[in-house]
Structure formats: structure tokens, C-alpha cells
Amino acid sequence: MSQTHQPQQHPQYPPFQPQQQPTQVARNGLGTAALILGIIGALSGLIPLMFWLAGILGVIALILGLTGRARAKRGEATNKGVALTGVILALASLGLAVFGAYTTFKAVDDAVDEINKSVSDTKAKDTDAKGTDKSDSSGKGADKGKDEKPAAGKALDAGDSVIYDDDLTVAVSNAVTFSPSEYAAGHSKGNHAYKVTVTVTNDSKEKFDASLLQTSARAGADGVDAEQIFDEAVGTGFEGTIMPGKKATVVYGFDAPADAKNLTVEVEPSFEYDATQWDLKL
């Protein structure tokens, strides 16, 4: 009896399918942020006073834009153009920030200069007004001892002082007769000898070269030159420098005719200063 063999069946498997890779999400956030900040920074830079905001946003946008471009080159982002635009706007923001800072600071400096100029003009007007009051009060000058500029064409009285623009002050005392010694130079027989005290006070910020100071005198109504007398401590003149906040005093002697009623003393601190005259009664 024969046996029938049935063919052995093998299990059926589904055909092989390759495994799908997960889709990578584009990282476009940095490029987009750079674009937004660049736009805001550029608009802020158009306003000079907002230069600080434009500068800050420009720096941040530049960093984000460059990083976004690097991601796009690696294939991690797809908005390379957006990131590049953000970089360009960031550079524009920084340029506008620099220009705005320059414009703002220059405007502030100009305003400060104008204020200082206005203050100086006001002080000058006040000084001129005081000088006018001084000349109108008595026809001769102001109260003795005041540090004022003489009115144009007017001489100061004995004891008055003149103050220059840099706060250098010069004062001349009244003329006092004295008897020169036998060794005195510059005194003529029959004339009278007078001595005056010149005081220089340096209230400026720089030292003053006192050796440059020149003093001369004229006597009488005819304005005859009064020769300077040199006698021991009289007529030696100023020497050296006067430091800020200090003063120096020198006695000058002058020879005048016996009938002279006044002595006009002129003092010129140096070639940088105007000469000033004092009308001293004898």
C-alpha cells in the first residue's frame, strides 16, 4: 500500500520595506529673529536720540544673523536669505547708531557752548553797566578801592584799581613827597620828588611775569614827562613772577616841577594788557 507524500509548505513573509527616516524640522528661528531685530534697530537708528537702542539691537541681530546663516549652510535651516537680510539690517543699525551718537553729542556740546557764551555776555554787560554808573556818578570815576575797568578815555583816581579779563588787578596809591638821598638818580634841583606805590594782585590761573610791567608818569597840565627817580628801595621795579593768588608791591619815584598840580601815572602790565592811567593830585 503506497503512501502519498504532500509537499512541505513554507511560511510566507511580507516583502522587506526599508525603514523611513524621521523628517528633520528646519531651525529657522535665529534667522527670523535677526530679521525682526534688524528692522527695529534700523528704524530706531533713524531717530538720533534712539542711537543707543539701535546699537544694542544691531549687535544682537548681527550675532543671530550670522548664526542663522551658519545653520543654513549646514542644512539645519532653510531661510539663508532671511538670515542674510538680518545681517545687513544689523550693520545698517550699527551705522545709524554711530551717526546718531555723533549727532546727539555734538548738539549737546553746541548747546553748552551757547549757554556759556550767553553767561559770558551777561557778565560783560553787567560789567559795562557798572563802569557806566561809575563814570556818571561823579565825573571822575567810582568809589575808591573798587576793582572796576575805567570808562573809555577816563583815568582812575588814587587808590582805585583796575581788574583785567584774566583777573589780574593793578592798583596805584596816592603820590607822596619824599626827600631823595644824595645818591639818588633822576632828581633835578628845584623839582619835587614824589613816590607812588603800585600793587599787582594775581587772581588769574596762570603765573604773571612781573618783570614785563612798565610804569611811566607825566606831570602838570602840560603833561611834561616826569623822570623816574632811582634811590635805594625807590624805583627798583618788579622782578620775577607773581604766582596765582599772590600779590607784589613796588614803590616808584618821579621828579615833577614844583608848580605841578597833578601827576598822571600810566601802568602797562605787559604787551598783552592795555595800559591804564591814574590821575593823582599833588
Rank of each mutant, 00 (worst) to 15 (best):
Q17T: 14
G235V: 06
M1I: 08
L94G: 02
I47E: 05
D255P: 10
V267N: 12
K246H: 05
L282N: 14
T104P: 03
E268P: 09
E266P: 08
S270P: 04
T104K: 06
F208C: 04
G139S: 07
V87C: 06
L282W: 13
G58R: 03
W278H: 08
A152D: 14
A61F: 00
K134Y: 02
D165Q: 15
D255F: 02
Q3G: 12
L212Y: 08
D109I: 01
E114F: 03
T23Y: 14
G141N: 00
P14C: 09
A256K: 09
K117Q: 12
A54Q: 08
G75N: 10
N262E: 15
K195Q: 11
L43M: 05
S2A: 15
N116V: 05
A124K: 15
A217K: 06
V98Y: 07
E239A: 12
L57Q: 09
T104I: 11
G141D: 00
K125D: 11
Q277E: 14
Q24R: 10
V265C: 10
L156T: 03
K117R: 13
T264E: 13
A97E: 10
K123M: 12
T201L: 07
S161W: 11
V267H: 12
S137L: 01
A258H: 09
A152R: 14
A54G: 14
V87R: 04
D225G: 02
G240D: 13
R69Y: 02
K134L: 03
Q19N: 11
A185S: 15
Y13L: 12
G31C: 06
I56E: 05
K246N: 03
L168W: 09
A210D: 04
A107Y: 03
G240N: 11
K80I: 10
K261Q: 12
P180G: 00
L168R: 08
G58Q: 05
G131C: 03
I47G: 03
K207E: 13
E268H: 06
T85C: 07
G86I: 01
V112R: 01
T201S: 13
P15L: 00
G100I: 10
